[in-house]
Amino acid sequence: MASALAAGPLGCFVVWRRMAYFGDATAHAAILGVAVALALEIPIFLGVLALAGLMSAAVALSAGRSYAADTLLGVAAHTALAAGLTAMAFLPGARLDLMGYLFGDILAVSRGDVWTILFGAAAALGLLAWRWTGLLASTLSPDLAAAEGRDPARERLILMLALAFLVAAALKVVGALLITALLVIPAAAARAVSSTPERMALAAAAIGAGAVLAGLAASWTWDAPAGPSVVLAASAALALANLAAVLRRALRG
């Protein structure tokens, strides 16, 4: 729930800035982060945060060079994923957890994990709330923001940091492969019913939280896997929101 609430508004920026691939890259780097954390015997949250952060920085710095952004992200994301999977294979005992980190395992979430999730989600949301206007202005037009005395590069860095926090928080629940879905789908659904960025952020948070509840309920009732159920619920919300928007436009004439 907490991670969905944070993922909504953050996901709006991911969608606005066309960063969906970037979300993937960060999430895949998280698997490598898990492996590193297990190998070094540091808390997994820290390992994931560090690797996701490193990935953000690397991609941010190399953007706009000789490869197109999506090529670069494709390379980075899957290299990180493959490296993570390979590293996991060499770590004794880690193989058992692998599925959990890839797809999420809500039943394996401990009391300590809950605090981790709350902290990560709160950090991501806090960063967003703190820099909201600056982030919005730089998303709309970096040039305009810079001319008005803001620093688009710094705002971008803060957004990536927030993303790293969220990935670290949500990894255990939704899994690396589906985190991007939690970011992008509620935001896309919210777009259909919003007229301002603030409303879209709130709607995305609400839709994300609703999808988590619905997904978990489905998982409970039909014994479906939790993470994928949540994503499917979000997709259903997206379809409904668009249907509602189409109907409303049709009614208005």
């Binding site: 709309l140 037009s141 040039d143 001319a147 777009r191």
Partner: peptide
């Protein structure tokens, strides 16, 4: 400084009313 850029690369996924945009000027 007031700056009017040549274009804004408006992403249609970003809902933005004129009034909200003007509020961004502070």
């Amino acid at each position: 400084l007031g700056y009017v850029p040549q274009t804004l690369a408006l992403d249609r996924t970003l809902p933005m009313t004129v009034d909200r945009f003007l509020a961004l000027a502070g």
